[in-house]
Design a protein around this nucleic acid. Structure first.
Lengths: 179, 179
DNA sequence: TGCTCCATGTAACACGTTACATGATTGC
DNA sequence: GCAATCATGTAACGTGTTACATGGAGCA
């Protein structure tokens, strides 16, 4: 049960509306914790009921219907409590690997086009991470502790994408071989 | 919806009982597609109802209550259909990375012990993968197409664990620095 | 006898996904 | 005026998790 805590973290980084949170979950924090906008609205309602966050109308509201949320002290306490909890590394649920295994046992499945599509997606994401890095962490720039952690998170994402790409290329070569 | 297909794949690799499938999901295929024994029993019941698999009493049953399952032609067809479907790369749900972000914004969270625990788990799993590799894919051994795919899957797991370990060590160094 | 592990399940609930609904605003 | 996008939600359903139930087999 970490979705509320991912939302709390995102709100602490920047107080905002459910809609903008959902969009942020499509990039940034969502690269490490995926969630749909419906999950986010549901969690916001629950957390408001629990007294972890509160809604307010932003001063520059103007003519939108946006409801902004900010984290209350109880929310901070809960987030700190959860962060100190022990939890095992994430379980993988990687459908493509299962498909490869299915191919290994069935034969007659052509996974090359899908693999190449995934490769392109991983390359695109890696390129985006590199742009983030160039923008936020230029070489030589002194970093606060928090920024250094954010940089390491980005590097973790880059490492992951690089691994997927290197492995994917080798896999294309194998699958493209004549049987 | 890939759990039934992961089970089908596992049953094609070896017909067996729900109990043994559950144990296999704790190693082997479970490293890429996690599932609990309750999920597996539920899927077996559904797939039997759908005519994808059938239960039978193994000839050497003896005095156990084990029900073995084997894949029926309809199950093969369904697995091949699913394997050809397009699906995006897996979404991550990595609680530890969220905790790091929480630490970056909150401070005052000590994630070093947890990180070291994870490091030990990743190292152990990598060692296990290496044992699998030495046992199943000794250098120079000629491989069928299916075996070559299985080897690549194992290498993907090794690459992943190596990345986690390298990154984790760098992260320990950062978090251990005096603030 | 009592303990542990084997083996299969039921039930309740929490979480995640998909489809749909509603109305306001912005741009052509 | 119309379409696309903004912004928030409801509802239904499917998947995943946790707790518990049941009874047999092996063994000290």
């Amino acid at each position: 049960m970490s979705l509320p805590h991912a939302v709390l973290t995102s709100l602490l980084e920047k107080s905002t509306s459910g809609y903008d949170l959902a969009r942020r979950f499509d990039k940034s924090i969502g690269y490490f914790w995926h969630a749909t906008h419906q999950q986010i609205y549901r969690e916001l309602a629950r957390m408001e009921a629990a007294g972890w966050i509160e809604a307010y109308v932003p001063p520059d509201a103007g003519n939108t219907r946006k409801k902004h949320y900010r984290v209350l002290p109880a929310g901070r306490v809960e987030l700190a409590r959860w962060a100190q909890d022990s939890a095992d590394p994430m379980d993988l649920r990687d459908a493509f690997t299962v498909k490869l295994r299915a191919d290994a046992v069935l034969g007659e499945v052509d996974l090359v086009p899908e693999l190449q599509r995934h490769l392109a997606l991983h390359e695109e994401r890696l390129a985006q991470y590199r742009r983030f890095e160039a923008r936020d962490f230029p070489p030589g720039k002194p970093l606060t502790r928090g920024q250094a952690i954010q940089h390491m998170i980005l590097k973790k994402g880059m490492l992951y994408e690089q691994g997927e790409i290197a492995w994917g290329r080798e896999m294309v070569a194998l699958l493209s071989q004549p049987a």
